[in-house]
Design a protein around this nucleic acid. Sequence first.
DNA 1: ATGAAAGCGCTAACAA
DNA 2: TTGTTAGCGCTTTCAT
Lengths: 342, 342
Amino acid sequence: MKNTHYTIRDVARLAGVSHQTVSRVINKVEKVSPGTREKVERVIEELNYQPNAIARSMARGKTRTLACLSPNLTDFTFASIIEGAEQKAREVGYYLLSSSCSDEDTFAEIVHELVGRRRIDGLIIINPYIDYRYEFIPAHFPTIFVGDESKDDEIAWVALDDELAGYMAVKHLIGLGHREILCIQGTISDACTQNRTLGYFRALQEEQISPKETLLFCGDWTATSGYKSIETALEKDQKFSAVFAQNDRMAIGAMHALRNANIQIPQQVSVIGFDDMPLASYFDPPLTTIRQDFNQIGQEAARTLIHKIEHPDENETSHRIAVELVERQSTALKSGGEHIER
Amino acid sequence: MKNTHYTIRDVARLAGVSHQTVSRVINKVEKVSPGTREKVERVIEELNYQPNAIARSMARGKTRTLACLSPNLTDFTFASIIEGAEQKAREVGYYLLSSSCSDEDTFAEIVHELVGRRRIDGLIIINPYIDYRYEFIPAHFPTIFVGDESKDDEIAWVALDDELAGYMAVKHLIGLGHREILCIQGTISDACTQNRTLGYFRALQEEQISPKETLLFCGDWTATSGYKSIETALEKDQKFSAVFAQNDRMAIGAMHALRNANIQIPQQVSVIGFDDMPLASYFDPPLTTIRQDFNQIGQEAARTLIHKIEHPDENETSHRIAVELVERQSTALKSGGEHIER
DNA sequence: ATGAAAGCGCTAACAA
DNA sequence: TTGTTAGCGCTTTCAT
């Protein structure tokens, strides 16, 4: 590949036109005669000319670059969203910077730089309510939230229908005859946690099962927190025949704790997870779970954000993405009424 | 946050100096008198002025942006490398674009655009030899390879000492008394696969164990390929008391197949993996594995690349990153000499 | 130590 | 339809 780079003027000179005509050609402006256009296009082809993106950004005042800020880049859920956003962005000629912001200070700093130095046209924020990071979003800057509904009317969002998803998970367990359903929640401040729990309550209520405080545990999305929840429940001799873990990692932790206590899954206790992470079907037993389409969430976020950038006047719309129940072998019919042997 | 953006001339006007003096201040050039400097700095502070990155790129001909091209963004291994690279880049004032390139055509297209349009100063390529993508790297463009040694003298690389890592894994099994060690390889064209297998052979050789063709299986890094390898081995009645899977996902697949065949791990067969992925300690049983420090690999890659960009004359150095054996419960002493009961 | 002028490669506004 | 002239916001070079 050549390393010398030509400019719009090189092309103009060789084609015998003004640089502005070249600009018109590369920008697909109509007012160029077919003959001139062809001449210019031939030279572009010959030189393998590509317009300098920086110069364009400079002249247009737009960078065609987005940034996606996520608590980290490695969680499968975040990584998939980013991948989806990147694909969609690229499809329409945008680029995506992604940064991990473990805390709100890092977040504030990155946003301040990215926006202040005019590096980007828009911002995708994954899990904006994980802490107070949302307070550092500059007003009127094109932004979209992912994972949680936005509490600011000006900011659109893309999220699951978490309430429905939680409801579906619990309905599935109830349908199998379970009535004492332990719920391991995610980080309690996340709106999605609250919504999933709301779904849990609605499902119980619909079946006239009165919810018990003692069956509600607070996790933090980690496998360890799932493990500890079950450990605690077991120590306290809590009765339950099913577990609804609000993500797969906590479900794994929960299954681990149950196994350590010699409790059979699903014969004695059913477990349902949430996310359908890549190895979910390889767990022991393969995990029944609620599948989210993270890639689609990312694509939708990028699409909506770019629309907002290019049509600032129109009202952008927020989206809820559908979920799907994937039944594997970690859930089963409650064994005929008798209590779990421990 | 303000949405109006000031320029270097606004600052100059308010400070009563020329815009060039402001430029000197923000670029920390020495030749500014302390008084003037202070005056300018105060105005900068007041206006919350930040230099426009695009204009700087334009004037300097450098974007301070890197791109990391990876087969995908979601594999834990890749995502961790990207996260490390992003952290290091940010630390020194660079930004990182990351793109997933599933095939060489996509790869070629992205590289062509990114480089041709002068969007980036350097390129980090994860798994360059996964297909023919490496052929599309422009000559003399600052580039670093991650995951595999480069076959081009001009391109530096960061990789594991895979041969040593493979050797360590197999030595561990041999130390536990195993002599019939099944090896599930990664994608055979990857140099890291070949090196890990070389390490496998060296360990066997050192103990005068003659390697058997029939114990070598070809996987493709997926859990399914690990599963199938064991399934095939079992069908063919292959004798083995230990498995070395060249990544954790294949190890999981292998364990799954063993479990389905009612073979106890580690009582009847030991399994060692590679990578130490996040849930490795939550598998059943918790997986013994070789841990890689992916974040460090990413950081090292970014560091080396940036050095090359800023000091094009100096020779950059390639790096091998150390690995570590993490012993959990999937490996154990071979049960006293007798053959596995099946 | 400071300022003036030119230019990075493009687009936008106007003129022809 | 085409060309000319100005910028975009900086850095760089050259004067002062």
